[in-house]
């Protein structure tokens, strides 16, 4: 039963957020490529540098942080309102009276599912962001695809991906646990569910930005 709930949450959090992640990642990479090209006007800097900059900004910041901030809104509000509604309509009480540990049954699968699916979404976002930059460069004629591919292979630091994954796991935990806390402890009616949902998203976003700074300070020295 708990396994079933875990799989259900994986589908809800992972597959449910796939659409928005795909759109954001693609355009984030595309815009990043165009703006980098706009700023790199010096003839001494090779055009392939654009690909390097897109790659590193997408891997280091855009894919983990930007995507997770969007997911804090999408997934966070959903978790907070779902649990809040269950609390207000006494569904959580009903589960407790049945002898079910509601934190284990309702909260834990959400956190575990987020820890599994959000890093996977971040990896997808990395790939799509870099591809978005390639497509934009090619469509506008700023950077031919072969030169973009060449740039991607130059000065690649694998540690950047490890750092991005550290961020993804940290943010995944924040995105799922903070809204779960606010939703689980709602008191009152539908107005309070809305309030707790908004509060959960705001606190999650702030926590993500704060954690982003801490992780960068600790791991990029």
């Amino acid at each position: 039963m708990y396994w079933k709930e875990f799989m259900h949450q994986c589908a809800e959090i992972g597959l449910g957020s796939m659409g928005i992640v795909v759109i954001i990642s693609f355009f984030m990479g595309a815009v990043s490529a165009l703006q980098t090209a706009y700023q790199l006007t010096s003839p001494v800097i090779p055009k392939s540098t654009i690909a390097q900059i897109v790659r590193d900004t997408v891997i280091l910041e855009f894919a983990p942080t930007l995507v997770c901030i969007v997911l804090a809104g999408v997934v966070g509000s959903k978790i907070a309102s779902e649990l809040g509604n269950m609390r207000v309509s006494e569904q959580i009480d009903a589960l407790e009276i049945m002898g079910i540990n509601t934190k284990t049954y309702l909260v834990l699968p959400k956190i575990l599912a987020a820890l599994l699916t959000i890093p996977a979404l971040v990896i997808i976002a990395m790939g799509l962001g870099i591809w978005g930059g390639r497509v934009a460069g090619s469509l506008t004629g700023i950077l031919p695809p072969n030169m973009y591919d060449l740039g991607l292979l130059e000065n690649f630091v694998p540690y950047n991906v490890v750092f991005a994954m550290c961020k993804a796991y940290t943010f995944a935990f924040l995105i799922s646990s903070i809204p779960a806390f606010y939703g689980y402890h709602v008191e009152g009616g539908s107005l309070e569910i809305g309030r707790s949902s908004t509060k959960a998203v705001v606190v999650s976003c702030v926590a993500i930005l704060f954690a982003d700074y801490i992780l960068a300070a600790l791991l990029l020295q």
Binding site: S89, E90, Q91, D93, A94, I97, M98, G99
Partner: peptide, 17 residues
């Protein structure tokens, strides 16, 4: 074990939507 022997009807029914 005791809770397995308890059934409860809630004011708002508390059915899982």
């Amino acid at each position: 074990e005791i809770r397995k022997q308890i059934g409860m009807l809630f004011q708002g029914s508390a059915l899982f939507d």
